[in-house]
Design a binder for these strands. Structure first.
Lengths: 193, 193
DNA sequence: CTGCGTCTAGACTGACCGGTCTACTCATAC
DNA sequence: GTATGAGTAGACCGGTCAGTCTAGACGCAG
């Protein structure tokens, strides 16, 4: 017996609640109540709240990778458009959550001054995402859709960072406008002159 | 008697500690210990922790406005360069704090899902900053340094948002590189083609 | 001097925190 | 049948939280 439902339910509930409330404002008990799981089960599946938080990030990243898989590997679409599709899809996801922004950005901001574990985790996640985008940007460059002297990794990091800024603002303003404005600017600027 | 020293010391201490630890991880007692102030004084000067947090943001904004005053009103410098100077100065400030990023971004991320007071406050602050930048961008446009069809307010909001993203990443990576990369990209892209 | 408001001082309160503990259920193995 | 171990159940623990309360220090007005 793997008791997948309980553990999975905890993670899904936790991921949603962490996005809304952040880490320190979210008590373990609140997750348990929401997921209708007793405390003993929680500490059976997770050694600590911190480990639980990290596991929630892992679950979040699974979804991100799925999105990247779906968008970035479509050979029928030009590489830059694939990237744009990925972010448009992400914006759509945000909409469904009430424009609460990105879990990585949220936990990264809140915890990176206080927990080396979370700081390193979130930083690593951003690096991984950027690397996948960079691959696609390199393709775009090789096809001539970007200037030949482009550094794909740096351009990808920049994209991720600006996206996170736009996601923060979308969270503050409860609006998708900052997301789309940022994408428009970025893709207009990245194209070779 | 205004007892400026105590109140001021609390705010300065609180501002620094909020930047590092965030709101919920920071106990009132920790601020008191650091500032060497007894609890009675704290609740004499502030009605609650929330009011204190807002006051810390106000103090932070005072410094931001000083920076804007210094940089944006220099008639000897072209408008776009003035803006760049402001952000370079801000990056320098971040360096002195160990690259902990921006207090507005930090508190905005952590609290906007949980406190309407803080959400509105931070959103307002970003709007104010963007408006001041927009004025300067309008000047730049009128001088021909930007395309005539530029919307200064939108371009300013974009700048603020992307800056916050870069500031988050600089906090995560403990490095100024994301800040400068973002500025390079922005100013290269904003110039008319 | 007395009286009063501002500010300092810190013990104290009740709620809630993360985490532990023991007891229990139940499916499977023998 | 009995034993085993994963998972459920929630009472309980020490510690910490934001906030309150009473007491006193200090400057000033009369």
């Amino acid at each position: 017996m793997i008791a997948r439902p309980t553990r999975q339910r905890l993670l899904e509930t936790g991921m949603a609640m962490l996005l809304e409330r952040g880490y320190h404002d979210l008590g373990v008990q609140a997750v348990l109540t929401e997921a209708e799981v007793p405390k003993g089960s929680f500490y059976h599946h997770f050694r600590s709240k911190e480990e639980f938080g990290i596991a929630c990030i892992d679950l979040y990243m699974e979804a991100v990778h799925e999105g990247l898989d779906q968008c970035l590997q479509d050979p029928a679409t030009p590489p830059l458009q694939r990237i744009r599709n990925f972010f448009e899809g992400t914006a759509e996801k945000y909409r469904g959550q009430g424009y609460l922004g990105c879990l990585l950005g949220g936990l990264g901001q809140e915890l990176s001054g206080v927990s080396e574990t979370f700081r390193a985790k979130v930083e690593e996640c951003f690096g991984v995402i950027a690397s996948r985008l960079a691959q696609c940007l390199a393709e775009a460059r090789d096809e001539g859709a970007l200037a030949p002297e482009t550094d794909p990794q740096q351009l990808a990091e920049l994209l991720v960072n600006c996206w996170e800024g736009a996601a923060l603002r979308c969270r503050l303003a409860r609006s998708p406008a900052p997301l789309h404005a940022m994408l428009d600017f970025y893709f207009a600027a990245a194209a070779p002159r």
